[in-house]
Simulated assay, not measured.
Amino acid sequence: MSGLGGITPDLVAGLATLSIPSPSEGTWYLGPVPLRGYALSIILGIVVAVWLSERRWVARGGTAGDIQDLAIWGIPFGLVGGRLYHVATDSGRYFGEGNNPVTALYVWRGGLGVWGAIALGAVGVLIGARLKGIRLLPVLDAIAPTVLVAQAIGRWGNWFNQELFGKPTDLPWALEIDPAHRPSGYLDQATFHPTFLYECLWNLAAFAVVVWLDRRLRLGHGRVAALYVMAYTLGRGWIEMLRIDDVELADVGGLRFNVWTSIVLFVLAAAYFAWSSRRRPGREESVHLDGREVGDVRDDVTR
């Protein structure tokens, strides 16, 4: 019997057997040097974000090379902040009976909390911006959308580590997880929601929307950064609900800790966006603390 609209039983059966394989190895060796998929994903995301930020910054009136200088401060601060947030919110993995606290330093095994990375990374950018005579809010507006791209690429590190996946599913895009990486309650399940892929696609779409709104509305005074927070938390909230990895902090009202974090940050970012739009509409006339006009490049030692 022919299928309706070309959909045959064989096609349905074929789709049911489709899935996304996980890599059998997440680490390769170049002689004695280990190349880890997780680390490579993070590094590639950072490189792309710095490149995109540089282009956005110059278009906004900044000087070429500024973002690379700020990255010297922001990246180390962000990595430390991300690791501190992860260890603080999941300390049971590293401290207590049967655990080795030294493993808290093993970043290559995975474990970077995005909010810690953003918070402390912003502190690093603030320090670098002050030293270079740059206003903080314009540079955050230039950088913020590109962080979505960095996060989209960095999420593939979870794929290499076979971690942070979602609930079991038999959808055609389900992710295959090896038994050694499955939670104890799911050993008889083979395929799961690929939350790393969901977040990757969400972040790329959010990047396009935020950049489009920035160009169309000529946003300034931190409102692009606020849009970034709103866009990211909107996606992170529903994706987090799919995940089955253990969380040390107890659920409140049936929601995971990171879901509540997303809700609170979304509300705060939306409130700031509304307040800033009323108080300081438009975009900054200068991105420099000394008041130079946009595009007015000074050829001196402070450049």
Results as ranks from 00 to 15, higher is better:
residue 3 G to M: 07
residue 5 G to C: 02
residue 6 G to I: 03
residue 8 T to D: 11
residue 8 T to K: 08
residue 10 D to C: 00
residue 15 L to N: 03
residue 18 L to T: 13
residue 21 P to M: 05
residue 25 E to Q: 15
residue 30 L to G: 01
residue 31 G to K: 02
residue 31 G to M: 04
residue 32 P to I: 06
residue 36 R to Q: 15
residue 37 G to Q: 06
residue 40 L to G: 07
residue 42 I to V: 15
residue 43 I to Y: 01
residue 47 V to E: 05
residue 47 V to W: 14
residue 47 V to L: 15
residue 47 V to H: 06
residue 49 A to K: 12
residue 50 V to Y: 08
residue 52 L to V: 08
residue 54 E to S: 10
residue 57 W to G: 03
residue 59 A to P: 02
residue 62 G to M: 07
residue 64 A to S: 14
residue 65 G to T: 04
residue 66 D to Q: 10
residue 74 G to Q: 05
residue 75 I to G: 02
residue 77 F to G: 08
residue 78 G to Y: 09
residue 79 L to G: 00
residue 84 L to F: 12
residue 84 L to C: 04
residue 90 D to M: 14
residue 93 R to K: 15
residue 94 Y to A: 03
residue 94 Y to E: 04
residue 101 P to W: 09
residue 113 G to R: 10
residue 113 G to T: 10
residue 118 I to N: 01
residue 121 G to W: 11
residue 122 A to M: 14
residue 129 A to D: 03
residue 132 K to I: 02
residue 133 G to R: 11
residue 135 R to W: 01
residue 139 V to C: 10
residue 142 A to Y: 03
residue 143 I to Y: 04
residue 146 T to D: 12
residue 147 V to D: 00
residue 149 V to T: 13
residue 151 Q to N: 10
residue 153 I to D: 01
residue 161 N to T: 03
residue 161 N to A: 09
residue 166 G to R: 09
residue 175 L to N: 04
residue 176 E to V: 04
residue 178 D to K: 13
residue 190 A to F: 12
residue 195 T to L: 03
residue 199 E to R: 08
residue 200 C to E: 05
residue 200 C to M: 15
residue 205 A to E: 00
residue 206 A to E: 01
residue 206 A to S: 13
residue 209 V to D: 08
residue 210 V to H: 07
residue 216 R to M: 07
residue 218 R to M: 06
residue 220 G to V: 07
residue 225 A to V: 11
residue 226 A to R: 09
residue 227 L to A: 10
residue 227 L to V: 06
residue 228 Y to I: 02
residue 231 A to D: 06
residue 232 Y to C: 01
residue 232 Y to W: 06
residue 233 T to W: 00
residue 235 G to C: 05
residue 237 G to E: 11
residue 243 R to P: 04
residue 244 I to H: 00
residue 244 I to Q: 07
residue 244 I to N: 04
residue 250 A to C: 06
residue 251 D to G: 13
residue 254 G to I: 10
residue 258 N to V: 06
residue 259 V to R: 02
residue 271 A to R: 07
residue 271 A to M: 12
residue 281 P to G: 07
residue 285 E to I: 02
residue 289 L to V: 14
residue 294 V to T: 15
residue 297 V to D: 12
residue 297 V to I: 15
residue 298 R to G: 00
residue 299 D to R: 14
residue 299 D to Y: 13
residue 301 V to I: 13
